[in-house]
Design a protein around this nucleic acid. Structure first.
Lengths: 224, 224
DNA sequence: CCCGATACTGAGCGAGCGCTTAGCCCCGTC
DNA sequence: GACGGGGCTAAGCGCTCGCTCAGTATCGGG
């Protein structure tokens, strides 16, 4: 959507749209702090400290601590929806599109798990109106995935007795990556994305993609 | 494991082992409060209030607020492990045992989602030693599921290229039920358990169980 | 050289937190 | 029927929280 906002090695940096610079530094600091300790356990002094500023500086750029979470959540969900829309809207079979959607969605949750944790797991800390706004975005994510699955069923490529339930399960599987990823550290986001794409194709009863990522053998064994 | 601890209609009540009565009331109140607002956003005054007691009463039965969370987490994980062990240890094919494990594990997360939310999502609020103790229990849960999947592969009933990764995904899928269940409210714990057992059998490439829960048609349509 | 605007800091306010203490009530014991 | 002790409460301690405000450094325009 915007230009050149990825760094190769580490986490994506989709905060280019946040200006001025000090506001962005505060927001990035808040993402880190919220991801590590949770919204309620994070103090405004901690956020400001990570950004190299005094506690009072936060309130020049944000009205409240909750506004920070709201901004993070909004931008993050917009990015998540964008990923799913892109995969759902490309040309190809439903099988290819579903594998693409799951793969890229999982890569985003794994690679940017700091952001994803906040976006996916701190929703309840928002006030009612902000939460309602975010939930609307979530429903749109749900609709994108359900659309792909319905297409696959219509094509005859998928065998899915319960489309809404399976949609829920697929999204749940992807989202939960943000909770457990990197605690062991044995897998790369790309590996998890490929694994999950394969698992989801199995869940919907699709033939696996030939050339793609059907794993032959695991590169390295994970934790015993 | 203990006798007659289930109530039919609502949530399971596995707190019979907590005595005396006042300590149990406080613990149940804490579970509700932690599930609703999270550990850090819950005050000791709120817990005591829900239990119909003064704030100071809490400290007669528990040394700190964190000890409450620790107790809840310990008992909850023991119950979860017990469920998986029971399913893994019964006689039958790997397919039957995996379906049983997933079905009962999901029913527990859905039916007792208040408890499960605390148990599965407030782990980071514990101190280092308590957290390490709980993580050890989690690894045992992981081992039980991985054992069933390995059995299925050995039997030739499953086709699983990446056993540790698939184990992780299966557990993740089940656990995340505690996050989303009942927000829509369209499904019963039994329905979700049956759906998820079917989905997991597909993930491991097993033949679906004949007489069991392969859904023909969805009883009621879920949210549009 | 002064001006107002902008970005920020140091100090601190009121509130609510986790937890403690002093004392009361109640009940089984002899 | 006086007594000892566990279960509980009212009051409050010390602290940290989210947030505010008066004041300062910096800087472009006249």
């Amino acid at each position: 959507m915007s230009t050149a906002e990825e760094t190769v090695g580490g986490e994506a940096q989709p905060w280019a749209e946040v200006t001025p610079d000090a506001a962005r530094r505060l927001l990035v600091a808040a993402v880190e702090a919220f991801a590590e300790r949770g919204y309620h356990a994070t103090t405004t002094r901690d956020i400001a400290g990570r950004a190299g500023m005094s506690p009072a500086a936060l309130y020049i750029h944000y009205k409240t601590k909750e506004e920070l979470l709201h901004r993070i959540s909004s931008i993050g969900h917009a990015k998540a929806l964008d990923i799913l829309r892109t995969a759902a809207g490309r040309e190809g079979t439903a099988t290819e599109r579903l594998a693409d959607a799951v793969g890229s969605f999982v890569r985003w949750h794994a690679g940017g798990r700091t952001t994803a944790r906040v976006v996916q797991y701190e929703l309840d800390s928002l006030g009612p109106e902000a939460r309602a706004e975010i939930i609307a975005l979530r429903r749109q994510c749900d609709a994108e995935v359900r659309g792909i699955i319905e297409d696959g069923v219509a094509e005859g490529a998928f065998d899915v007795p319960d489309v809404p339930g399976t949609t829920l399960a697929v999204l749940s599987l992807c989202i939960d990556v943000a909770r457990w990823f990197n605690v062991g550290g044995a897998r790369s986001p790309e590996e998890v994305g490929a694994l999950y794409a394969d698992l989801v194709l199995r869940m919907v009863g699709a033939e696996p993609l030939a050339g793609h990522a059907e794993p032959r053998e695991l590169p390295r064994s994970a934790r015993g």
